[in-house]
C-alpha cells in the first residue's frame, strides 16, 4: 500500500489540521515508513484464520448503571486551555 501527499492532506483536513508544505512532505515520508513497516505483516500466511479484533478472550465486561463521581467544575475548568462562564471555549466552529 502506498500513500502520497494528497492522502496526507486529506487526513489533515478531516482532522482540521493545517499543514505547511514542508510538514506535509515530512508526514508523507513518516507515514510511508510506518505503512511499510506494518506491511511486513502481509507476508504472514493467515489463510484459514478467523479475523479478530480482540485477543484477550474476555467478553461481557460491564458496570452497573449507577451514577457517581463526576468531577468538580473547578477540576474540569483547571484542565481546560480556556474555560469561561462554566464552559470550554474553543475557536468558533459552525
Amino acid at each position: 500500500m502506498s500513500l502520497d501527499q494528497k492522502d496526507v492532506l486529506h487526513v489533515a483536513k478531516l482532522s482540521a489540521l493545517e499543514l505547511s508544505e514542508q510538514e506535509a512532505e515530512e508526514f508523507t515520508k513518516d507515514l510511508q515508513d510506518i505503512l511499510g513497516y506494518v506491511e511486513r505483516l502481509e507476508s504472514v500466511d493467515v489463510h484459514g484464520v478467523v479475523p479478530t479484533s480482540h485477543v484477550h478472550g474476555i467478553v461481557n465486561d460491564f458496570r452497573d448503571d449507577i451514577a457517581k463521581n463526576s468531577l468538580k467544575l473547578e477540576e474540569v475548568a483547571e484542565m481546560a486551555p480556556e474555560f469561561k462562564g462554566g464552559g470550554f471555549r474553543v475557536p468558533k466552529v459552525l
Binding site: F62, N69, S70, L73
Partner: peptide, 30 residues
C-alpha cells in the same frame, strides 16, 4: 459513571472518560 440528567449546570457531569483524558478507559453500562 457520570449521571445523565438534562438541565444540569454545564460541565458538571464530566469525568475522565467523558472528557477523553489520556489513559481513561470506557466500561460498558449493562
Amino acid at each position: 459513571n457520570s449521571g445523565t440528567e438534562a438541565g444540569r449546570e454545564p460541565n458538571t457531569l464530566c469525568d475522565p472518560v467523558t472528557l477523553g483524558l489520556p489513559g481513561a478507559l470506557p466500561v460498558l453500562n449493562k
